[in-house]
């Protein structure tokens, strides 16, 4: 009898996807946001490739990220011997871009366009991201291998079929494919896996003075939530009882009803 449990099944599927991506895309990168999900993704890559991460990691630095995130990034990039590429939309920052110009404007300039610049510079054809279906409703409709056109746009009304784990690995010159190995995980699964595997995370996730960050982003647009969860076990217990959404503390999602749909159609993560 097989003894695979729920987390093993999630892990096996993600490893299969990572290996498909690595085999089929010569110009491949993985987005590392330094958040819990992309740390799990990185861990899964080291599982898939037996302790190695043969895929370069791209971090889009908006310059507004919390300092603890940058410290964490630099520490583990060195410790794990990662090939780290940091991207930044310097022109937009020089012209004074910040969230007061409008949150969607700012996210598009510093994140989407910052990413676009790196993708062009390195000519990446495949980009691995740690998004999950349970995060919000447009992500619930994503494919594992999801094409973006030359303008970076996602045609969510006409997605290619994806069946029997036969993924979209053939594509036009001008397009790139977003690869989503964590699509089938939930927020609780992520923390259960972090606990089981003992994966390091940025300490901002843990409660200090009655508050913690449930989701990490740029300092001006990310708010902590009320919480007493001081460790991973505390977070898991809290999430099992909660009735609020994970991204409730992320201001750009609340900008208007379909903010996330508009951001993602234009190439946001």
């Amino acid at each position: 009898m097989s003894s695979t449990d729920h987390l093993d099944k999630l892990e096996n599927q993600s490893i299969f996807i990572l290996r498909e991506a690595y085999k089929k895309f010569k110009k491949l990168a993985m987005l590392w946001s330094i958040g819990k999900d992309s740390n799990v993704l990185l861990w899964l890559a080291r599982k898939a490739f037996y302790g190695h991460c043969p895929i370069p990691l791209v971090h889009i630095d908006t310059s507004y990220k919390m300092p603890e995130m940058i410290q964490f990034r630099d520490h583990y990039a060195k410790e794990w011997g990662l090939n780290l590429i940091v991207g930044q939309n310097k022109q937009a920052l020089a012209e004074g871009m910040n969230h007061t110009k409008g949150r969607i404007v700012c996210c598009t300039a510093l994140k989407t366009n910052g990413l676009q610049q790196i993708m062009e510079q390195y000519d990446y054809k495949g980009l691995i991201l740690g998004i999950r279906r349970d995060e919000e409703s447009t992500r619930a409709k994503e494919r594992y291998f999801s094409p973006r056109d030359k303008n970076f746009e996602w045609d969510f009304k006409d997605q290619p079929p994806e069946l029997w784990d036969q993924f979209k690995t053939n594509f036009d010159e001008n397009t790139h494919i977003r690869i989503h190995p964590l699509l089938h995980w939930t927020e609780v699964n992520i923390w259960e896996y972090i606990q089981r595997e003992n994966i390091p995370v940025v300490p901002l996730y843990f409660s200090r003075n009655g508050k913690r960050y449930r989701s990490l982003g740029c300092a001006p647009c990310t708010n902590p939530v009320e919480s007493e969860a001081k460790d991973v076990a505390g977070i898991i217990a809290e999430l099992k009882a909660t009735r609020t959404s994970e991204r409730a503390g992320r201001a750009q999602d609340q900008e208007d009803t379909y903010a996330m749909q508009r951001l993602r159609a234009k190439g946001y993560m």
Binding site: R133, E136, S137, A140, K141, K157, H184, Q261
Partner: peptide, 21 residues
Amino acid sequence: LLDGLEEERDQGITIDVAQMF
């Protein structure tokens, strides 16, 4: 709760598969 796309809600129709847990 599932049909999160603007076009889906306006037309009351599901365009693409949603997966929930």
